[in-house]
Design a protein around this nucleic acid. Structure first.
Lengths: 120, 120
DNA sequence: CGAGATCGATGACAAGTGTCAACAAAGACA
DNA sequence: TGTCTTTGTTGACACTTGTCATCGATCTCG
């Protein structure tokens, strides 16, 4: 099942640290996103229904943990973008950014080091 | 205005080749997407309303051309992904793929060549 | 025990999306 | 001229998303 943008904010909180109570989740995401508690509650419920997070009973409340790993999520999103826009390949994406002037010197250095390490 | 997934299929047709009549667009996208003409007509209308494509009158019909460049669209989508998932930087994305085994030898070679060209 | 707080579930609603059919205007051709 | 076809506009409908409030059960503390 697909995870929406708002839902992914909740997932990020759980990926940083889990399990969490709904209270903890809210204290992490409410302020930055300017959301009320009601909003976050619904997002959590929907994620549970989508089986993206597990809710383990702990007394009267639940402890929530991700069932979907961040790695898998990132993989799906990234591959989706590559497939849709870059014919499924990574190099054209990198080329796109290098053609613009969006790459800082640091970025270039990091890329260089990375590619060397891969090639090894 | 945001371009939806279905709409982007129509945009791709126009980016490949424009201007196009609605008939030409339909003959390009209907079959692969399994869409009826009605569906494509609405997608075109919505794109015009969103000012993502221009409709120039040509007798009783219109000739459609993109107003949004593929480059700008790709830039927006790609940057959005980087911002959401990789802290806005490109290297972590590349690292993600190199950590998996999704990169072919060709991909690695292409990246290597690319990075060298950038570093020049 | 009873009042208040907590927490999840549910209902609600507007906007956007995917999908399609019906309609109207305008040409084309018999 | 009258009918058929083409093409864009509209209406329609179900589903998802973002956003929030209310309800009901349960827990806690005086």
């Amino acid at each position: 099942m697909k995870i929406s943008a708002a839902e992914s904010v909740v997932m990020e909180a759980l990926w940083r640290n889990s399990p969490l109570t709904s209270e903890a989740i809210m204290s992490e995401v409410c302020a930055p996103q300017d959301w009320t508690e009601g909003t976050v509650k619904v997002l959590i419920s929907r994620l549970v229904k989508k089986k993206a997070v597990a809710a383990k009973a702990d007394g009267r409340r639940y402890l929530y943990s991700p069932l979907l790993s961040r790695r898998d999520y990132v993989q799906g999103e990234s591959q989706g973008l590559l497939d849709r826009l870059f014919d499924g390949r990574l190099a054209p994406l990198v080329m796109h950014f290098s053609d613009g002037d969006t790459l800082s010197d640091e970025d270039v250095a990091a890329l260089k080091a990375l590619v060397e390490r891969i090639g090894k």
